[in-house]
């Protein structure tokens, strides 16, 4: 199973969500936070660290702690969330076409994906990387669940 983690700032409300889908993209678990609106005093106290602290410590870390399903990966498109848990990996797309998995650095990999490559940042175990490659070959649209997650967070924010 794959987890997708996102924290958004929508209309000055901070909201985060964690969507777990199976290999076919069917939702298995969805946890989200109540939107947070920091008050003026909190803005003064936290200063420039407010956004970072809210995103990482308060929202993302809490969501990951509450996850129930066993996940192989938790993907995020936000590099700042990488530090909260070892299961969290940063995901981005590269146009560079490769034929096999390539290790760029200690915690950075390129995996063949469609006409380009997938860049994964984080400590990935070799067997997990192999499993991911297989799922991608079978046609997994790895970025698509992010869109559903973002739409779900917009829905949550608009309905509260």
């Amino acid at each position: 199973m794959i987890g997708y983690l996102a924290v958004e700032k929508l209309n000055n409300k901070f909201v985060g969500g964690l969507l777990v889908v199976d290999e076919r993209g069917i939702p298995q678990e969805f946890k989200y936070t109540e939107p947070i609106v920091p008050n003026e005093l909190q803005r003064i106290l936290y200063g420039k660290s407010l956004d970072y602290f809210l995103k990482t410590e308060i929202i993302a870390a809490t969501l990951v702690k509450k996850i129930e399903k066993p996940v192989d990966f938790i993907f995020t498109k936000d590099l700042e969330l990488l530090e909260i848990d070892q299961r969290v990996f940063y995901l981005s797309e590269r146009r560079e076409e490769i034929s096999e998995v390539r290790k760029i650095s200690e915690e950075e990999y390129l995996v063949p994906y469609r006409e380009g490559a997938l860049r994964i940042v984080g400590k990935v175990l070799p067997d997990k990387l192999r499993k991911l490659s297989e799922m991608l070959e079978e046609g997994l649209d790895i970025f698509e669940p992010f869109e559903r997650l973002e739409k779900a967070l917009e829905y949550v924010c608009s309905s509260t």
Partner: peptide, 22 residues
């Protein structure tokens, strides 16, 4: 003043079940 949030769960939200296929 304490920055806290509640975690809620709802895997049945409609946007989660609307899948885009490329």
């Amino acid at each position: 003043t304490a920055l806290e949030t509640r975690i809620l769960s709802n895997p049945s939200l409609l946007p989660l079940w609307r899948k885009k296929v490329k």
